[in-house]
Simulated scan of single mutants.
Amino acid sequence: KDNPLTARVMVNRVWQWHFGEGIVRTPSDFGLRSEAPSYPDLLDWLARRFMAEGWSIKQLHRLIMNSAVYQQSATNDPAYGKIDPNNALLYKWNLRRLDFESMRDTLLVLGDNLDPAQGGRPVRQVETPRRTVYGYVDRTALPDMYQVFDFANPDMSTAERVETIVPQQALFLMNSQSVLQQARRLAARSEVAQAERVEGKVQALYQLVFQRAPTPKELQSAAAFVKNQPPLPAYRRTQYQRQTQAARERAKAYTKRYNRPAPAAIFNNIPIPMSPIDKLAQVLMETNEFLYVQ
């Protein structure tokens, strides 16, 4: 309590986590050369409240998330936009893309495949259903998928991640075996599979992915997309099952011989058969509405 800088720095980091930018936009520099806080009184008040509540981070999260400013929508207001074009005063919610960990976990949730177990040893396989936070990070061999989605450099302390928009991110969502598998699992969920008509399947997918019903125009467009796709030949499913079984046997033999997990490349070369409704599920998982926090 004798050094209020500690509380201010911590409060600013938590605020940055929720809003994308801190009240002080240089989270590692509160010195004379740093940028002035956008809300100095708010920063001081949060720091005092944080200390008064026993330095409880949980209470701080609850305070921020129950506030009106956190619960705003991202709808633009032209009048306020002229006064505050950078939204420094938070007259609306800043659109934020899901970070890599949140995106991967959400894909697993949609596929009804996320392992909710807490604790335990880290896992090496990227394809595991464990939460991404339990992924093993090898500083000398960081998986390409981590680097494509702006994962923090494990060799240094990182106050905030640099966000990029590069073609490799879209290509990953289009071609990754793990994404295709989750799209198939999403389309196979009971809410979708039990719908008899295409329109019912579309509505179920929208509810699962976006937690809302599709607009009439979206419903018509998505249903037309599904109906215009060529049906999946039955032999493709049988072929995929045979290839997957052969890959499992090769992976088992590899593990037995080398006493370590088999490389994912054993499975990555197997083309995944996608039905029309599987393709629509994948399309919805690549939209901005899914990838960005509204």
Rank of each mutant, 00 (worst) to 15 (best):
P261E: 06
V226E: 02
G81N: 14
R248S: 07
Y134R: 15
N268H: 09
Q282G: 08
M103G: 03
Q118C: 09
D44T: 11
P167R: 00
N113I: 04
V192E: 04
I165E: 13
V202G: 08
A141M: 11
L108E: 04
Y146V: 01
K201H: 05
Y292H: 14
L90G: 13
E53A: 06
G120M: 04
Y240F: 13
K217N: 09
E286M: 15
Y235H: 14
A74M: 05
F172W: 08
D77H: 08
S178R: 12
N259Q: 14
Y292I: 10
G120N: 12
Q239P: 02
A213V: 06
N87R: 00
T132K: 07
P85T: 01
P27R: 02
A183W: 02
E196S: 11
W15Q: 01
P143Y: 06
T215A: 06
D138N: 14
V109E: 05
E127M: 13
A117T: 15
Y292F: 15
D29E: 03
L173R: 01
P261Y: 14
E199F: 08
M10T: 14
G20A: 09
V209R: 00
R248W: 08
A170R: 11
Q125N: 12
D84W: 07
A281M: 05
W17P: 05
V11S: 02
L173C: 01
K82E: 15
N12T: 07
